[in-house]
Nucleic acid binder design. Structure first.
Length: 307
DNA sequence: AAACCGGGGTA
DNA sequence: TACCCAGGTTT
């Protein structure tokens, strides 16, 4: 749950999961829709699907017994090197060094390592370095300590070098490289997409949602029928049929003139909502008051709130 | 190796 | 605006 997510952001979700799923059996027996609903707003939804998959795997194939070694943990879907190391060391006292974003920063600065932390070579190098320098006498406290040190003392911006107990032997501080380390390879270019959501209102005031399938963002979450084209007041009358072939629409109303820009880490979504009134009665219509039961992206949840 | 996958906080 | 977050999986 905390992968690429601040503790402060994830805490309320953790408490919610703990309450709804007190045991791994409760999680395994839940529907994916319920798991995604409770995850709504946290992002990186594959984590929720992987968590759910792994809960079912442990219940059905591992006799409900949680793996207790790094080697077995890292086989679980959604569990990589960091998570396996964290669980193995903190929960089971196994000698495994964790390397999260904090540890990369502390090690890169203290030892003056300029290998990119997101390169294949860098990942391998830092794991080896972390393993060599770890304190084995109390691995669980050491691992949590170095992560906390990175979060509070050796922070990404404006680290507290003037009060740092390691300042006398920190290579980055000596060479004036604190602000340049760690080095990270450039991220990929952000793509722009045009989203046009069709909010149907039928004769009895119901609307409809569709579930996102296949690859791409927001897998298995719900949204209004989507047109990903350049849509305007004129061509909407033809284009809508691409997603709503069976619905006869009597009026098209653009809800927001200026695009709502929803920013993901790798995509910017320029979004328009269209209200489509129809005299028909939708077969799979949903009352607007029922929309809150469905797991939806923040973009959709924010729109529903404004209604 | 590079791309993909969210949302929010911070300087 | 740019960067980062108790990363992992897929292409």
């Amino acid at each position: 749950m905390l992968q690429q997510t601040r503790v402060a952001q994830g805490t309320s979700y953790y408490l919610s999961f703990e309450k709804h799923f007190p045991t791994i059996f409760d999680l395994a027996n839940a529907s994916e829709e319920k798991v995604l609903k409770l995850w709504q707003g946290l992002g990186y939804y594959s984590r929720a699907r992987n968590l759910h998959f792994t809960a079912k795997h442990i219940v059905n194939n591992l006799n409900g017994e949680f793996p207790n070694t790094y080697k077995e943990l890292v086989k679980l879907k959604g569990v990589g090197d960091y998570t396996a190391s964290a669980i193995a060391s903190i929960s089971f006292n196994e000698q495994q060094a964790v390397v999260d974003g904090n540890v990369y920063r502390v090690l890169a600065r203290y030892y003056g390592v300029d290998l990119p932390i997101n390169s294949t070579e860098g990942i391998k190098y830092f794991k080896k370095l972390a393993t060599e320098v770890m304190h084995t006498s109390n691995i669980r406290d050491y691992n949590q300590g170095i992560m906390e040190f990175g979060a509070l003392q050796c922070s990404p911006k404006k680290p507290n070098c003037n009060t740092c107990p390691l300042s006398s032997s920190c290579v980055a501080l000596e060479k004036n490289l604190v602000s340049t380390l760690p080095i990270k390879l450039k991220k990929t270019k952000i793509k722009k997409r045009n989203f046009n959501y069709l909010v149907v209102v039928d004769a009895v005031g119901n609307t409809m949602l569709q579930q996102r399938k296949g690859k791409g963002i927001w897998q298995n979450l719900y949204e209004f029928p989507l047109l990903e084209d350049e849509v305007n007041e004129t061509n909407i009358k033809e284009l809508y049929a691409k997603v709503l072939p069976k619905v006869e629409v009597k009026s098209f109303t653009l809800y927001n003139k200026d695009a709502i820009v929803h920013k993901l880490s790798h995509q910017h979504l320029y979004t328009h909502f269209w209200i489509l009134h129809t005299n028909a009665i939708l077969e799979d219509g949903i009352a607007f008051s029922e929309l809150k039961k469905y797991p939806v992206p923040v973009l959709i949840a924010d729109y529903i709130k404004t209604l």
